[in-house]
Write a protein that binds this DNA or RNA. Structure first.
Length: 170
DNA sequence: CCACGGTGGTAGA
DNA sequence: TCTACCACCGTGG
């Protein structure tokens, strides 16, 4: 029996003034980003094991995270591995990437953009399943009438990110 | 403010 | 398959 293909992930720390995020990489690119956890729960230190390719990606990740946390537009992203998502989720995530820093869209607007205007609630679900928050800017999706809506990483993060981009909430 | 109905996608059983 | 969730949205108290 042929064993299922292993899907090795390399985890690297993204140290910022707001805490240490954890990026994880597949062979295709950045596949996940976790918000800082409360305690200094074992930061990955496999830096020396990662290939030059991954280290290059990681440099792009670090600067992109820093820029987004500062409320600025990101210049360049590493390749993103979004294979974990369904077709619907990838459509939503793709639409999210087109929202510029400082701008917002509603869940309904995203649903319309992907040609499925009644799938409003499902759009919320896809945002919650976003494996790369901050860089795939799901925090820029608000409920109708500029209400905050939800955020899987905690509403404090969503408010912080939006405030740094100069977005006002209702 | 709250309740509710109409919705579509997902995961799990 | 069926079903129970849901980061929604409008309407109506």
């Amino acid at each position: 029996v042929i064993s299922k293909t292993e899907n090795p992930r390399i985890k690297l720390p993204v140290k910022t003034a707001d805490g240490t995020f954890i990026a994880n990489y597949s062979e295709k690119g950045l596949a996940g980003l976790q918000f800082p956890e409360d305690k200094a729960s074992r930061e990955p230190d496999e830096t020396e094991k990662s290939s030059a390719k991954v280290q290059g990606w990681h440099r792009l990740t670090v600067s992109a995270v820093e820029q987004t946390l500062a409320g600025k537009a990101t210049r360049k992203l590493p390749p993103l591995d979004l294979d974990s998502g369904t077709d619907f989720q990838r459509q939503v995530w793709s639409a999210l990437q087109k929202i510029e820093a400082g701008k917002t869209r509603s869940y309904l607007e995203i649903a319309k953009l992907i040609g499925n205007p009644r799938a409003v609630r499902a759009v919320g679900g896809a945002c919650g399943a976003n494996p790369i928050p901050v860089l795939i800017p799901c925090h820029r999706v608000l409920a109708a009438n500029h209400k905050i809506g939800g955020f899987s990483g905690g509403l404090d993060w969503k408010r912080t990110l939006l405030a740094r981009e100069g977005v006002k909430l209702r």
